[in-house]
């Protein structure tokens, strides 16, 4: 990719984001938000041994706006990786690349290479349907289908034909709800609409729905942003338990949450991956000025 004009890059980033928070952040910390060079190299260990997913030189364009710039990142097996950064820094966009949810947006264009177990998921020949069965996603706002709790969970297994019989399906539903820690709360009202649950329960229902398909990687896009503190605590607890069986990538705007649930943390800024490292190291001893500014609460 040709080196692009710095000024130009900056304006594009701004327009992509078009977010009041970011503009405010810029004003508050002039030094901190100086745009990074286009050939900026991420600080910290982007590569891990035996990665589950591996991204190389990923770029995302919305139309002609450059939203993600040259990101390299590995996601390790059975680990939680948190992606943090100011609003609109591209962390959610990056997350959506990992199971090609960006395909649903017409003007979005992704270049680079993302491998899941050595398979390039942006290969033309690759089919997104099995990919998404392998890489599940939980969204910012709980979005249960307007169906019963049971049908919500059974939807994935049904479309993929994962359960051969009704009994098997019942078992999948129970196991998924149990894993999401929701079974005890809803086992007596499986036939009631999922939209009738509380916000926290709904989000755990969505998580249960995702794990009912038995994916390998779960992507979570600010899963707690719409929840109250108690519900958040439950979901966080759940994430910690799920780590045993799944690989998880979580986007969050809460640094405390990132510190609590993740083992590795990646800090994004204006489309760049600035710094990545062990969560403890990032939060106690950030190496880049921008990371430090962000986690010490100077902006963001």
């Amino acid at each position: 990719m040709a080196v692009r004009d710095e000024e130009n890059d900056m304006t594009t980033a701004e327009t992509v984001i078009a977010d009041a928070d970011l503009v405010g952040a810029k004003v508050r910390s002039k030094a901190g938000s100086r745009p990074l060079d286009n050939d900026f190299k991420t600080i910290g260990e982007v590569r891990v041994n035996d990665p589950r997913m591996s991204c190389t030189d990923v770029n995302v364009f919305y139309g002609d706006k450059h939203a993600i710039k040259h990101v390299d990142l590995d996601i390790a097996q059975n680990q939680v990786i948190a992606m943090i950064g100011p609003s609109g820094c591209g962390k959610s966009t990056f997350l959506r690349c990992l199971n090609r949810m960006n395909d649903t947006i017409d003007i979005c264009n992704v270049t680079g290479e993302i491998r899941l177990d050595e398979v390039d998921i942006y290969d033309r020949k690759l089919d997104v349907v099995p990919l998404r069965a392998q890489v599940g996603m939980v969204f910012q706002k709980p979005n249960p289908f307007p169906k019963s709790i049971y049908e919500n969970i059974a939807y994935g297994p049904r479309i993929h034909g994962l359960a051969a019989s009704r009994a098997e399906l019942d078992e999948v539903v129970e196991r998924s709800l149990a894993k999401a820690g929701l079974w005890e709360e809803v086992k007596d009202r499986l036939d009631q609409p999922g939209t009738g649950l509380s916000g926290g329960q709904q989000q755990r229902l969505c998580i249960a729905r995702t794990i009912a398909v038995d994916p390998e990687v779960i992507l979570m896009d600010e899963p707690c942003s719409a929840l109250d503190p108690i519900a958040t605590a439950k979901v966080e607890e759940l994430i910690d338990e799920l780590r045993e069986n799944y690989t998880i990538a979580i986007v969050t705007h809460s640094m405390q949450q990132a510190a609590r649930v993740s083992q590795r943390t990646a800090y994004f800024h204006l489309g760049h991956l600035v710094e990545v490292g062990d969560t403890t190291q990032i939060f106690t001893n950030p190496r880049h000025k921008l990371t430090e500014d962000y986690i010490t609460g100077r902006f963001g």
């Binding site: 059975n78 089919d127 349907v129 099995p130 069965a133 392998q134 479309i159 993929h160 034909g161 994962l162 894993k179 398909v213 038995d214 994916p215 390998e216 045993e244 069986n245 799944y246």
Partner: peptide, 23 residues
């Protein structure tokens, strides 16, 4: 709880098997 590796392998196989019909 089942071993993750074994179960995911199973999932993806089932998914692949029914793909043709679904498409």
């Amino acid at each position: 709880m089942s071993e993750p590796d074994k179960s995911t392998a199973r999932t993806i196989d089932i998914v692949e098997a029914s793909l043709k019909r679904r498409y």
